[in-house]
């Protein structure tokens, strides 16, 4: 143990901004606490039984007005802190176009990560310093939570759903990753290490990894082997919407609603195809729930996204 640490490492852009609010809140709450304790102590000593302090009726000032005063002051303070924290959160949530996209699959009790070029890691993740990173996460069983204290980020990882995290690492080093949502027997051991490297080192590290096919390629193979291509590509007997270029577009549905084609919609369409049928098509597609795992869903989505005409 190297000395007593009172403040966690600051290793991401998020951490810098969160810490700024923490510092100001510490000052404000510290002042309020000091005020309350000072009043308690002063009054308790000054007005102890037998002291000669002046008593009698309360002075005018300490009647109703002061009550309304501190109610208003507390409300004002609360709204101020809310506005500031809320604005910060909105700023943090802005997606960044050139983010490095990394897929994370959680299961009892390990983290599996996959880089855009297909390189995989278990209970570990390497990322370059200074580059925005976007994690797309899903769980294969129960709810987990991806927590890196040094980055001040945490997001639950749910089965049947994609959640994401955005951050830019700012300091090289190795930082612990924890599962923060209780997930069963070995919850406490479901951790890993996040390694932040200089961009050159990251590139070198990445090229030394066994070349996996990238996700899109793997997705294409699945697209054929699962039989999707029979209807969605080429001229099969069944009429199904073509998938080229649909990514990011708004499509009209049978019931008049409009949905944007994103990860969530593609997943829904594979697992519950009859929920949001595109206008002009028969609801004929069978559900693939139970037939495709989370890993495969990620690959299928990556493939559809990569089809020509698709937007970045």
């Amino acid at each position: 143990m190297s000395g007593l640490r009172l403040w966690p490492v600051v290793a991401s852009d998020v951490a810098t901004r969160v810490d700024a609010i923490v510092v100001v809140l510490l000052l404000i709450t510290g002042a309020v606490l000091a005020l309350v304790l000072a009043l308690l102590l002063t009054f308790a000593i000054r007005y102890r039984r037998g002291s000669s302090a002046r008593r009698g009726a309360l002075p005018e000032l300490v009647q109703k007005e002061v009550e309304i005063g501190w109610t208003a002051a507390t409300l004002f303070l609360a709204v101020f802190i809310f506005a500031w924290a809320g604005a910060t959160e909105l700023g943090l949530a802005k997606p960044s176009g050139d983010a490095l996209e990394i897929h994370v699959a959680a299961k009892q009790w390990m983290w599996k990560t996959q880089h855009p070029n297909g390189a995989r890691e278990i209970d570990a993740l390497h990322v370059p310093r200074g580059q925005p990173v976007r994690l797309l996460m899903t769980s294969q069983d129960v709810i987990h939570s991806f927590f890196v204290p040094a980055f001040r980020i945490k997001q639950d990882v749910l089965p049947g759903r994609l959640t994401e995290l955005l951050f830019t690492p700012t300091l090289t080093g190795e930082y612990p990753l924890f599962c923060a949502e209780y997930c069963g027997t070995l919850h406490a051991r479901m951790g890993g290490t996040i390694t932040v490297m200089e961009p050159e080192d990251y590139a070198r590290w990445l090229s030394a990894q066994p070349e996996g096919d990238d996700l899109g390629h793997e997705g294409r193979a699945l697209f054929v082997s699962l039989g999707c291509s029979g209807c969605h590509a080429g001229n099969g007997p069944v009429r199904a919407p073509g998938l080229a270029g649909i990514w990011g577009r708004d499509v009209p549905l049978e019931d008049g609603r409009i949905r944007r084609v994103d990860e969530a919609y593609l997943r829904d369409s594979i697992l519950q195809p009859r929920r949001d049928v595109v206008a002009g098509y028969e609801p004929r597609m069978p559900s693939f729930a139970g037939l495709v795992g989370e890993d495969e869903l990620i690959r299928l989505v990556a493939y559809i996204r990569s089809l020509p005409g698709g937007q970045p």
Partner: peptide, 25 residues
């Protein structure tokens, strides 16, 4: 944040109940 206000009112009011009292411990 809004629900913090009534709790603060209570704390201040307890504190000010001590004011000009005849306190024993």
């Amino acid at each position: 944040f809004v629900i913090a206000v009534p709790s603060a009112i209570k704390v201040f009011n307890w504190t000010f109940t001590l004011y000009r009292g005849q306190i024993t411990f």
